[in-house]
Design a binder for these strands. Structure first.
Lengths: 243, 243
DNA sequence: GCAAAAGTGTTACCTGTACACCCATGC
DNA sequence: GCATGGGTGTACAGGTAACACTTTTGC
């Protein structure tokens, strides 16, 4: 291949038009259940269907594009953990043209209701088990995000991104219960969290007037400096997942 | 936003030209060491520098684009495990124009020498510790691929993708040693591999005339049907990684 | 015989799990 | 007192790590 052919091949306009978008799977916990942030599409295709918030990549890098979309379409921004999930580029995933989507995964503590803006007609928190069917291939993207979140709870302190700056071990346990969809033994969970170095550190304080019906005041903790949990908090193994 | 504005925004030609490429981190084991497949660039920018094989996304989906690149540029194809790694889209990562790269990770057993083809002037297997500096941001992509590979050896039967259809436990151990960069205790490794359900299954046969200097004939195994390893084979924890 | 590598036995230790239990508090 | 939930003790099961040891082959 000579120089001329090389540069021709390098021009994307020589190929089928191709767009790059970011779509964001934003998870939080509300009412003890895991919720995902969705928007309702106002335009075809899939008008009226729910979809993940997203938009086109412009001049900024991919991470910033995801952060911008989250802010523009929903008004959410502060204190969200954001990471890249995967890319989806099947031809035909958007009926209009070839679109490659870089999906992102975001976690945040329960905040105010989302504010619709940008392209989004309305924005809402939906239960993850009752979210679909979504527009495009967003069901698949959501499923990938959920699996990633469930897995990362095991070996990273990600759960602390779902709670406030100060939290009780019980609040942390309810995060695990909501994301994994199963209850955890309170006593063992408590001991295990405290035994992982750098996961949480005590503030010395306790909850003030507890909103609970009874019981002692729980001690308050903040996130520690560990980036990975060792030893990990493993989900109870399910037989069908092993083989 | 009305329909007209919407469609305008939807046209990628209204924005900065944007290309999508796939770049592939292909790993194998040769001479007991972990190697990565590289090509030597014939054209600027970075002419003469090594780079990951890759190319533009055309009509096929991303997975197929990665498979095609691997075949075109290197002549390798059969029996490679291929999975998406991550996407890289920083503005300026390619000095010519905006390029979003979807990186893939491939593993295969040691095969014939790669065949240069397509854009690649030459293709070669390089030691992973002596691969860089690579063109573009490929050092970063390679680092991401290595970390993914090291991590996946722990909880998936990925190591079996580095060996032939039938293999000995020792061969499998040498895969772990090469990828993790540390020796493992032969006896304990042996017992552990056999204790994980579905990791390997015996063929009943043994090695014929062993090429080794002495010792008994090793039994042969093939990959089992487990998709995840339970319990996992954890790397020895390093203190600096914990916090 | 000797060296090398496969494979096994044994033991000490460590972690996760289950379950019982105590304690502090609100009502 | 009694219910509720935070927090701890303890015993058992299972996995890990270290190390010695036996077995089988090539030279």
């Amino acid at each position: 291949m000579n120089e001329r052919e090389f540069l021709e091949n390098y021009d994307p306009r020589a190929f089928e038009p191709l767009a790059v978008t970011v779509d964001v799977v934003t998870l939080t916990i509300r009412e003890g259940r895991l919720k995902v942030l969705l928007v309702e599409r106002g335009e075809p295709p899939f008008a009226g269907r729910r979809a993940l918030p997203g938009g086109f990549v412009r001049d900024d890098d991919l991470d910033n594009a995801a952060r911008r979309e989250l802010a523009e379409e929903t008004g959410l921004l502060p204190r969200v953990h954001l990471e890249q999930l995967a890319s989806f580029g099947d031809p035909g995933r958007d009926p209009r043209m070839r679109v490659v989507s870089v999906a992102y995964l975001a976690f945040g503590p329960s905040l105010a209701d989302p504010v619709a803006g940008g392209d989004a007609a309305t924005a809402l928190w939906a239960d993850v088990d009752a979210a679909g069917p979504l527009a495009f291939d967003h069901d698949r993207i959501l499923a990938a995000g959920l699996e990633r979140a469930r897995s990362k709870l095991e070996y990273t302190p990600l759960a602390t991104a779902f709670v406030g700056d100060e939290f009780t071990i019980s609040e942390l346990r309810s995060v695990y219960a909501a994301v994994w969809g199963e209850d955890l033994h309170a006593g063992n969970f408590h001991r295990k969290v405290l035994s992982v170095p750098g996961f949480v550190e005590s503030t010395g304080a306790t909850t003030e007037r507890s909103s609970q019906r009874g019981g002692p005041r729980a001690r308050l903790y903040r996130a520690g400096d560990a980036r990975i949990l060792h030893p990990a908090l493993l989900r109870p193994a399910r037989e069908e997942e092993v083989r």
